[in-house]
Design a protein around this nucleic acid. Sequence first.
DNA 1: ATCGCCTAAATTGTGTACAAAGTGAGCACT
DNA 2: AGTGCTCACTTTGTACACAATTTAGGCGAT
Lengths: 279, 279
Amino acid sequence: MSVTKRPAAPRPRAGRAAIPPPARGVWAESGHDSIVDTVRDAVASGRLPAGAKLIEADLAATFAVSRTRVRQALQRLSFVGLVTLEPNRGAFVASPSIEEAHAVHAARRLIECNIVRDATRHCTANDIRRLRAHCAAQAEAEARGEDVRLLRLLGEFHLLIAELGGNAVLADFMRQLIPRTALLQALYQHPRERGCGVADHLKLLDQMAKGDEAGAVATLRQHLVGNLARLSVRPAPTQMTDLASALRPPNAKSGSAPGAPAPPETAATPTARLRSRPR
Amino acid sequence: MSVTKRPAAPRPRAGRAAIPPPARGVWAESGHDSIVDTVRDAVASGRLPAGAKLIEADLAATFAVSRTRVRQALQRLSFVGLVTLEPNRGAFVASPSIEEAHAVHAARRLIECNIVRDATRHCTANDIRRLRAHCAAQAEAEARGEDVRLLRLLGEFHLLIAELGGNAVLADFMRQLIPRTALLQALYQHPRERGCGVADHLKLLDQMAKGDEAGAVATLRQHLVGNLARLSVRPAPTQMTDLASALRPPNAKSGSAPGAPAPPETAATPTARLRSRPR
DNA sequence: ATCGCCTAAATTGTGTACAAAGTGAGCACT
DNA sequence: AGTGCTCACTTTGTACACAATTTAGGCGAT
């Protein structure tokens, strides 16, 4: 048979003409390769409002994949707590209560303070240098007003420290907590005072560099309680948009591959409007 | 109406004569309804040796479902850390290193001690009563030598306390940590000294009842370090069995539904042998 | 005899079809 | 008008088919 090699055109994709394939991986190139990352960013930045229903078919069309992959992604997102899966009803962007906010922050205080103590012990000069560079990137993103990039970097920073802590399990928990924190900020914080203070990060690094465990922990704790305090009880208002544009980052990385000039793509899409969960 | 109607014979699986449909949901009735629970128990109790490859088709046949469901289950298990998913290679029972054991136990000390402090504050007399009853069940299972049931109860106990703590996020983390602890014990502990001491549990409850926060925390910490100390560096030997029998609990709950007398079922199975990961 | 390629089988990855469940509008009835 | 029912439509759940990848074994050349 000798097949197996290249059956020429593996393009059986003719399916239903409805819902035009809005875009192939257009913005999938940007660095995150997976659906999970894109949705996570959209949720964390608040472009996908809490409670919004995530219809599998729409997501599938948006990402130009089949529902199979979408379901996988949704399941993963539900593990992390960004998405709520209701049997036979579908997936919704999680809308955590204020109590949940407190729980998340309490967990973070407990875990991350421990991590920072350990990290302060273990970290090398090289580690500190890398973290400083990372902080610079944060500051730059902030200065330029690159919102989503900043958000991602801020989370990344905490994660890097978590990895320095040396406990893979705790680092994994942080991986779950960070996006949840972001969602909470998107929900309960005025858009103006978002973020988590690059200045604090620098102070933290200084103390870590000096080996000042107690100080570093204190700084972090303060940083975290500050974040929590900035949450207001009233959920921030969320404007409804259509799924595709919520998922598309404001402007792709930069390069904007000339080969694919990112056409007006889904403009023609029936614009599946986001409706929050009726319940 | 859960599991469909049974449209007569959903048994299209004629293909390879090998691996005959070993059993329909036979032991799925026993209380845990899902694949996840069954596999989790099998892993936690050591019947499925660490590193064993979990072939989707075999699992599907064993549980009489399609691979779709199996994949879902495997994904969930991998999230908890009981199963390792290697792209294009398949799923393996996790074989955590000793370092991982320390990480898991450190995380548990950190989190569970915090939980117990909170639980001691919040718990009502009623809560304590329920926990005492639960301890009695543990003791009974231990006395009767009902291994898997004991294992499940011991985990459940810690989880109940976690829920008393009042922080849903931390409770969720405990849900992830408990089965991992069990896997570690299955891997690194002599079968004789398994388990985690019902006596300790009782002592803990007494202190919680008295509102002795410090004492309760101390007891728990001691309990946990004791568990960790019982792990030996050398992985315990694992005997290979076939998948189906590894998944079948030694003897179902108790009742042994007369309607389904649990025949010698898979005895005739060609016994898809478990092979640990070559790597 | 050993190494490497090449082929065949086994296993995982993904798309699609169909069934079950949920949702909402319209209609009849009180 | 208000309430409850039915029916059509939407959306999720599951099985299955086929493609892609890995794995193992055989064959020939050095």
